[in-house]
Design a protein around this nucleic acid. Structure first.
Lengths: 199, 199
DNA sequence: CCCCTAAATTGACCGCGGTCAATACAGGAA
DNA sequence: TTCCTGTATTGACCGCGGTCAATTTAGGGG
């Protein structure tokens, strides 16, 4: 028994599934995404969906990964931040995207941790990219803005940790008036800021 | 239409539901917890379950909250850590509990963010307790061990952020040899450590 | 051109969380 | 004791994610 290369109708089907899902998300958000609706739009049977994606979460991770990619690219295209405040400002779009919806946040969290491992999940690759971008920013910043006693890679990972913390808080604090930036900045100042005299 | 005080059979039913759920978790873990099994054990109808708990997650949050409470209490009873390394060591049991199971971690994350808000969820209250405990530790530590330029409350919240980051990583990095402490410590040293000379 | 086999697709089916109109019950008032 | 009203419980039912044995189709070899 030998294996053959995938037929081209496979990719056609796959693409129409993705397209259908994209449409539904665009129209009604991730919360309204049903596998049965996706396959109905794509004019395939339900089983076909699961022949292409392990589960619904994987498909969502794919869509979210694409979007995050675009957001990240846009951030990367802008001039790099020169201060911690600018850095906090720069990553706001990403936080807004991830924090737009509990479901998005959950999916991101589930797959983000895999960043350290080799994987096919686009969303994980994105998290790696993110860390690299932050690390690049940090080493390019004026030395008086950033502490020099910690590895930039570790600092970059820390930014992620705080980002997630702030977003998680946002979901529970609906009646909360403090903005995302205002929550994030104190962490980043303390985490990234240069050595200061003891109080 | 006026309201009456709850009847006592209500609490009886509620307790038997909780007890049944506890048994199942003890026997087969959270992954094997089914509402239908719980109600079968508790000898009530399915609908009754949802008259007592908003959804399955809430019940799990309750059980997990109880367990976390016990773990936290034990940590609190021990002598407070005198160094960052000791601190990292001290919170290992909590991380082990949260990180024992993907489901536990998910539930914890979902309800932990509410720590800053007034709420009935025991699990959230626990997260508040946690922050307070850490803050207490930090102010009691020898000044040469801890940076003095940042509010202990903020530092305590940061510990949580890093804890979650490390646990999230653990789930994706099954073939990873680095231990939990080894992952956490670098973050904590950089986050909590006293001001050092620039590199 | 047909045949053969692995790839692709199908849809009936299942498990399980969650709902709700109907019913039974507790316990205070008369 | 009886009635009455809000509380507690019931279980048939639904929605939706996910499975799998059966079926169709692509496309290379003879």
């Amino acid at each position: 028994m030998q294996t053959r290369s995938p037929q081209k109708r496979r990719t056609v089907t796959r693409n129409s599934l993705i397209a259908a899902a994209c449409d539904i998300v665009a129209e009604n958000g991730f919360g309204a995404l049903r596998v049965e609706d996706i396959v109905a739009r794509a004019k395939v049977a339900k089983g076909t969906f699961f022949a292409h994606f392990e589960d619904k979460d994987r498909l969502m991770a794919l869509l979210i990964g694409q979007e995050m990619d675009a957001v990240l690219q846009k951030i990367d295209d802008a001039p790099p931040p020169q201060t911690i405040a600018e850095l906090a400002q720069a990553i706001i779009p990403l936080m807004d995207y991830i924090g737009q919806d509990r479901i998005v946040f959950d999916v991101v969290l589930r797959f983000s941790g895999a960043a350290a491992i080799e994987t096919t999940e686009k969303i994980s690759v994105n998290f790696l990219k993110q860390v690299h971008l932050y690390a690049r920013w940090l080493v390019a910043m004026p030395p008086d803005q950033i502490r020099g006693d910690v590895d930039p890679g570790l600092l970059a990972e820390g930014i992620q940790a705080f980002m997630i913390q702030v977003i998680a808080l946002r979901f529970c604090a609906l009646h909360n008036s403090v903005s995302t930036t205002d929550r994030l900045l104190p962490y980043l100042v303390a985490w990234l800021g240069p050595v200061r005299s003891q109080q």
